[in-house]
């Protein structure tokens, strides 16, 4: 993966994708725009995990967006938009979601909504454990360790109503 990309590389390519925390309504708008690109990025990674082993029902795909978009938005409101820092970790988890969904489909030609729900629950549990483990070791965190810890919050930070 190309990790040499800077923020200035991203901005002209993905309008509205701003990693800075400015505060106020501008920040909210920036997060709203960025979160859609992040959900797309994760959907692509889920597809990578599934590969050509099965198709997906449309409502299963819709569930990914409905389930994770509010969590991602809540995580960004808490930590700022750290997507470029956390992307490698989070997309790896998204691939794992795809892999789990294939397993739950049990050889069927199509992955159903229920399969995706079960796979999502698995990865959320994984992320909760991952985030908790990192939080326990916080005092020993290196920069890399801190990145991994916060990355765990992308799908575990429950949105406030």
């Amino acid at each position: 993966m190309n990790t040499d990309m800077t923020r200035s590389d991203i901005r002209p390519i993905a309008p509205g994708f701003d990693t800075t925390i400015d505060g106020g309504s501008d920040q909210t708008l920036a997060f709203e725009r960025a979160v859609d690109a992040i959900v797309d990025d994760c959907c692509l990674a889920v597809g990578q995990g599934v590969g050509l082993r099965a198709a997906l029902d449309f409502d299963a795909v819709c569930h990914i967006r409905r389930n994770f978009r509010p969590k991602f938005l809540a995580a960004m409101r808490q930590f700022g938009n750290r997507w470029l820092e956390d992307r490698q970790t989070v997309t790896a988890v998204a691939m794992m979601l795809g892999e789990r969904a294939v397993r739950y489909a049990g050889g069927a030609a199509t992955i159903s909504l229920e399969d995706i729900r079960r796979a999502s629950a698995d990865v959320e549990r994984y992320c909760q454990l991952h985030a908790a483990r990192r939080a326990r070791g916080r005092e020993h965190d290196t920069t890399e360790g801190a990145t991994a810890r916060i990355a765990g919050y992308w799908c575990t930070w429950e949105p406030k109503e």
């Binding site: 959900v39 797309d40 959907c43 692509l44 889920v46 597809g47 795909v61 819709c62 967006r65 795809g98």
Partner: peptide, 11 residues
């Protein structure tokens, strides 16, 4: 989302 997921499947 659906189309990008499909692209990911191909990759």
């Amino acid at each position: 989302n659906d189309c990008l997921l499909a692209a990911g499947q191909g990759i």
